[in-house]
Structures are given as structure tokens and as C-alpha cells.
Write a protein that binds this DNA or RNA. Structure first.
Length: 358
DNA sequence: CGGTTTTGACCGGCGC
DNA sequence: GCGCCGGTCAAAACCG
């Protein structure tokens, strides 16, 4: 399953001039102001400026689209590498898992344990669900629960002083138990989704044994209802809980601003790690947007407008900076990320529904 | 008052 | 069969 096949990466911001708009605008201006030669000249200049602005913005739009496409391609490449790695591990480990009668609960019970068997179970379950019979043969008798339950792990950085095991993922959870497990001194909390009656999703939340400030949430199952509309922070974890990759997905919020890229993907032996820096404050993002919009706004400062537009046109480094600013502002904005993640997870869900019908 | 959290008891799977 | 352990139940307490 190709990621690009699921997500339309064209990112149409609907801000490109229509073909012929140039002519139409000029004709309209001319017909409206015939006989007023001086005004006519002024309006022509203004129309020209606006068209330049439109062209510039549409070219930026195009560049942003290309950037997003590159990101998706990188994701696909990394995912392919991961699949190869998984296949290699599968060949080496399958006998071990068949021979050992180790309790299966341990796979799930220890989210910090980067258990290869756990990954394999998930991958096999998912591939038999969505792929051809060739892939089904990789695990001929997948256990039924492995197919039914999708398990995803989300780890989040929290305040070290925050002792509550609350992971805000947008869904409504009801805690039904708490246990201290053998391998981790910090208690593990058990949650059920209480947003919709009969929703089978469960969640286990426990602090990482290595880093107490990291809370590890293990989601089991799929929600049978849409995400709570008033909770935009749901995006990342919701995407993780419905991830089509089916492998371990760690969504981390990192304190501070050390990450220059707010969203990055890395491949490590435990699986792909998606690191989301959600800690950037809204004020920063909005400030950037405000800065940007005020500097490029066609309505701001008539006398400087043309020269500013020319600056952006003539200087590629400024264009590059502008593009980076736009991308940075978009990715820093939580609401944009939430909307993007919701759209992607929606696409994935839609695709899963379509493939399950085949 | 209804929903949520807490917490001890209980259950079932697994290893020895 | 027994004990360990993770997961779940359910009554009481808590909260808005």
C-alpha cells in the first residue's frame, strides 16, 4: 500500500488564477473605465500588481506542494526499508516464536519492550487484512485476535512533576483499573473508550521505566465512532491508533525547541518513530503567520507594495525564506496539524473500508 | 444525580 | 496443582 495512493498530496490551496483570468480582469477593467485614461492607467497597474501577486502565491503554492510530495516520498522510502527489515526479522524469529510458549500477554504488557514478535504479529495481521495472498503466506495461521485487534503504541513526553496518567488524545476515556506491574514500578492505568457505547478500544497508560517523564499509551482496537470534534489534539494519537502501517508508532511531544523540524521521521531498530514537536506555542505560530501575512499582504501599505513584491520576486533567498516561513508556520500551528492528521487518518480509514470490502 | 476514579478482589493464562 | 502475573470487575468514594 503506497502512502501516496492514500493521501492526495497536491495540497490545493485554491489560490491560483484561473486560465484567462488575466485577460478577463483586464477587459473588465478596461470596459468599466473607458474614457478615464488616467484612472485607467492606475487600475491597469493595480490589476497587474494583483496578477503578479497571484502568480507569486501560486508558485509558492506549487513549491509547498512539491515539498509535501518529497516528504511523502521520503516516508515511502523509509517505510519500504522498514518492511524489508521486518521481513528479515520475520525469517529469523518465526521459529523462535513458534517454539516458545511464552505468555502472549508479555508482548502487550510491556510497551517499552521493543519486542520483535510483537511487531511481527502486527505486521502479519495487517498485511493479511489489506494485501494479496502472497503476503498472507508470510504467516499462514495468524491468530484471530491478531487480526482483530490493532495495537499501536504512543509515547508522549510530559512534565516530570505530572503524576497523572492522562494522555490527551481527543477521545473520552473511562479508567477501569490500575495495576503495578512487575517490570515497572510506576502503575499502569487501564482505560476504555467511553465516548461511544460499545466502542471496543482500550488503552493502557504507563510511565516509561527508562524516562519517567515519558508516558507510554498502548491502544488496542479501533474506534467505531468519529473523533470528538471539539478536541483537535486528538490528531496525532488518533492517527496512531488507526495507523495503516500497523507497526509501532511512537508519537512524541518533545519539550523545548531543539527540533528544527517540527515533524520528522526516523528509522531505528524498534521501528519507525514519528516525532511531532507539539510544544510550540500558538502565539509563536500565529505570530509568524501574522508577520508573514503582514509582510506580503496586498492591502498593507500601497506605496511599498510593489517594491516588496519585487523583492520577493527578484531574490530567490527571500523566496526560500518565505517558503520556509510558510511551511514552518503551518507545521507549528496545532490546528493545522490537527486538521491535516484528521484528513490523513480519515483517508486511511476510508481506504481501509474500501480494501476490506474487496 | 450521573459520570468518573479508586482500589481491593477476582479470574484466567502461563510457567514450573 | 500451585503460584505468579496481567487484566478486569464492581462497590465505594469522589466530583462537577
Amino acid at each position: 500500500m503506497e502512502f501516496t495512493s492514500l493521501v492526495d498530496t497536491s495540497l490545493d490551496l485554491s489560490f491560483r488564477p484561473l486560465p484567462g483570468l488575466d485577460k478577463m480582469a483586464k477587459q473588465e477593467v478596461q470596459s468599466n473605465f473607458t474614457g478615464l485614461s488616467r484612472d485607467n492607467m492606475l487600475v491597469k497597474d493595480e490589476a497587474g500588481d494583483l496578477l503578479e501577486e497571484l502568480n507569486r502565491v501560486s508558485s509558492e503554492n506549487k513549491k509547498l506542494t512539491e515539498m509535501l510530495t518529497v516528504v511523502c516520498e521520503n516516508y515511502n522510502a523509509l517505510r519500504n526499508q522498514l518492511m524489508e527489515y521486518m521481513n528479515n526479522q520475520n525469517n529469523g524469529v518465526v521459529d523462535d516464536s513458534a517454539g516458545s510458549r511464552k505468555r502472549k500477554a508479555e508482548n502487550i504488557s510491556n510497551p517499552n519492550n521493543n519486542n520483535k514478535n510483537n511487531n511481527l504479529d502486527i505486521v502479519c495481521g495487517r498485511s493479511s487484512e489489506s494485501s494479496s495472498s502472497d503476503e498472507e503466506s508470510c504467516c499462514k495461521k495468524p491468530r484471530e485476535e491478531d487480526i482483530k485487534t490493532k495495537v499501536s503504541v504512543v509515547s508522549m513526553k510530559t512534565e516530570a512533576s505530572d503524576t497523572s496518567l492522562i494522555v490527551k488524545d481527543g477521545y473520552q476515556w473511562r479508567k477501569y483499573g490500575q495495576k503495578v506491574t512487575r517490570d515497572n514500578p510506576s502503575p499502569r492505568a487501564y482505560f476504555r473508550c467511553s465516548f461511544a457505547p460499545g466502542c471496543p478500544v482500550k488503552k493502557k497508560v504507563q510511565r516509561s521505566i527508562e524516562d519517567q517523564s515519558i508516558v507510554v499509551a498502548t491502544y488496542e482496537g479501533e474506534h467505531n465512532h468519529p473523533i470528538h470534534p471539539s478536541k483537535p489534539e486528538a490528531a496525532a494519537a488518533a492517527a496512531a491508533s488507526t495507523t495503516s502501517a500497523g507497526s509501532r508508532l511512537n508519537v512524541r511531544t518533545i519539550g523545548g525547541t531543539t527540533a528544527s523540524v517540527p515533524c520528522s521521521t526516523t528509522l531505528n531498530p524498534s521501528g519507525p518513530t514519528i516525532t511531532l514537536d507539539l510544544t510550540e506555542s500558538k502565539t509563536v505560530a500565529k505570530g509568524d503567520i501574522m508577520k508573514m501575512s503582514s509582510s506580503i499582504s496586498p492591502t498593507g501599505g500601497n506605496s511599498h507594495r510593489t517594491t516588496e513584491a519585487d523583492q520577493y520576486h527578484d531574490r530567490p533567498e527571500l523566496q526560500q525564506f518565505l517558503i520556509e516561513q510558510m511551511a514552518s508556520s503551518l507545521t507549528k500551528d496545532p490546528s493545522f496539524k490537527a486538521a491535516l492528521a484528521a484528513a490523513i487518518s480519515g483517508k486511511i480509514l476510508q481506504h481501509n473500508n474500501q480494501t476490506s470490502r474487496w
